[in-house]
């Protein structure tokens, strides 16, 4: 019987993994389609980092799953967790599954998420779970690059031409509704926080807001302030977009179970 305390931790780790995997997958859709070669390479490098971080989390979630429910007929692996769970079992936030849109929308999505992930990993380094702390410490170095790169692009586009500015405004209108969820704790996040394995999102919120405000000011973009917020992704209630992502992501393993490169 799996204990309640392991269960919440596994859910927490899957949530972190799913965020990274889904955003990594979204960004990878730019491969070969970037506006210029250097930025095509940049966004796909960021994909690689995110998918790598996701793998580290999935491997750990698989290990805990197997330890708590030793079922020899079905051992969890990073692959079964990424490829064989269904949409309602995915715990990523709604922001990361949103379509790429134009370059402005992709940039803004990356910036809003990287700012969140930067402070998240900063805190998670202090987790009393050694593996989570180690993954956070490793990933933070990469996310520092992502945050800097996406911040520069938000400023470049926001404070660029009237067209790039307008596109950033459109992107804000499209994505702002999904930002609240990043900092509203799901049940397993509250549990993980109370056991000091996870982070306290109320500490993250002012840091995230300050960072986004600073960059928006420099980018001459208005602070959107309080708006209606859509939530549910972290509890498995997703927008229609995730189904299409999983259809593509999971196709090979569903059609040819266990296939390898």
């Amino acid at each position: 019987m799996r204990s309640q305390s392991t269960n919440h931790l596994i859910n927490y780790i899957l949530h972190l993994a799913d965020d990274s995997l889904i955003l990594g997958h979204r960004n990878s859709e730019w491969c070969g389609h970037g506006p210029v070669l250097e930025q095509d390479i940049a966004i796909t490098n960021i994909s690689l980092d995110l998918i790598g971080q996701g793998r580290n989390f999935y491997q750990y979630a698989a290990k805990l799953t197997n330890e708590s429910t030793p079922d020899p007929s079905f051992a969890a692996t990073e692959d079964t967790l990424a490829y064989l769970r269904d949409i309602r079992q995915f715990k990523n936030c709604l922001l990361v599954e949103q379509p790429n849109g134009d370059w402005a929308q992709t940039i803004l999505r990356q910036f809003l998420f990287s700012a969140y992930q930067f402070y998240l990993y900063q805190q998670l380094q202090n987790s009393n779970d050694e593996t989570l702390a180690a993954i956070a410490e490793k990933s933070l170095k990469e996310v520092t690059y992502h945050l800097r790169w996406s911040s520069e692009w938000v400023i470049r586009l926001g404070d660029g031409t009237s067209e790039s500015h307008q596109r950033m405004l459109n992107a804000i209108d499209e994505l702002w509704v999904y930002t609240g969820e990043l900092l509203i704790a799901a049940s397993y996040e509250l549990r993980a926080m109370s056991t000091q394995q996870g982070v306290d999102l109320t500490i993250l919120k002012p840091k995230w807001e300050e960072k986004v405000k600073d960059i928006f000011v420099e980018a001459t973009l208005p602070w959107p302030g309080e708006r209606f917020q859509q939530i549910g992704g972290k509890e498995g209630k997703h927008s229609e977009h995730l189904g299409y992502i999983l259809a593509e992501l999971q196709y090979m393993q569903r059609a040819y179970p266990g296939c390898e490169w």
Partner: peptide, 13 residues
């Protein structure tokens, strides 16, 4: 520098 990101994650151009 042409790009902060290069042919592999560890390199820039």
């Amino acid at each position: 520098r042409v790009s902060e990101f290069g042919s592999t994650p560890c390199k820039s151009l």
